[in-house]
């Protein structure tokens, strides 16, 4: 097994949920402000409007060879359809983080459910801020980026008039994630496959 600290994330949801923007902000935060090497990509085309949307981020302290996800360490699913479509590439040790507002069935016991859309709607008055709430939770769960770095990236990538709303959503999501007990997640099965590719 190769000695590397490669960490892979995939964000999935419906078109219009701001999946790709969240991934770009995350990539900028870890790539520019945390000093990691980063590769971020997304699905384009018919999927990008209305249907499913998908974005990926690979992080490493070493230069990254293959730029796409091989097996996710963290999968953020913003609705059931995206969860069903994109879960298969999740590593056995990977963690599923899902928006409980739209996701009811999870295919793994290593799942964390938080109602991002409900949080955004109730605490911020705008369901569209769910992506930033989810981003705050991703930041807490992955443990590889400071909220301050995510804030800086938001400031650069989001129009000024939405900056404050997005940062509040980020904190709301992070606060919700801190209530979760990651240690309580069941252990993963260390399969042989895990050692390959």
């Amino acid at each position: 097994m190769m000695q590397e600290d490669r960490y892979e994330l995939r964000f999935g949801g419906a078109g219009g949920q701001g999946i790709i923007l969240a991934a770009v902000i995350f990539a900028e935060a870890v790539g520019i402000h945390e000093g990691f090497h980063v590769c971020q990509s997304q699905s384009y085309g018919p999927e990008a409007r209305g249907g499913r949307s998908r974005a990926e981020i690979v992080i490493s302290s070493e230069p990254i060879d293959y730029p796409r996800v091989i097996g996710m360490d963290l999968f953020l699913a913003m609705n059931q359809a995206a969860l069903d479509a994109y879960f298969a590439d999740c590593k056995p040790r990977g963690i599923l983080l899902a928006d409980a507002t739209f996701v009811s069935q999870v295919p793994t016991s290593r799942a964390l459910l938080l109602p991002f859309t409900t949080i955004a709607r109730q605490q911020l008055g705008d369901a569209l801020a769910a992506n930033m709430a989810a981003l705050g939770a991703v930041g807490v769960v992955c443990g590889r980026v400071r909220l301050a770095s995510l804030e800086k990236a938001i400031a650069r990538r989001v129009p000024a008039k939405f900056k404050e709303l997005n940062i509040r959503a980020l904190h709301a999501g992070a606060a919700a994630a801190r209530q979760l007990d990651l240690a309580a997640l069941p252990p993963f099965i260390d399969s042989e496959e895990e050692k390959e590719v």
Partner: peptide, 10 residues
């Protein structure tokens, strides 16, 4: 190609 074109890297 489409991969290099649309992948963001540091």
């Amino acid at each position: 190609d489409e991969i290099v074109a649309h992948t963001r890297e540091t």
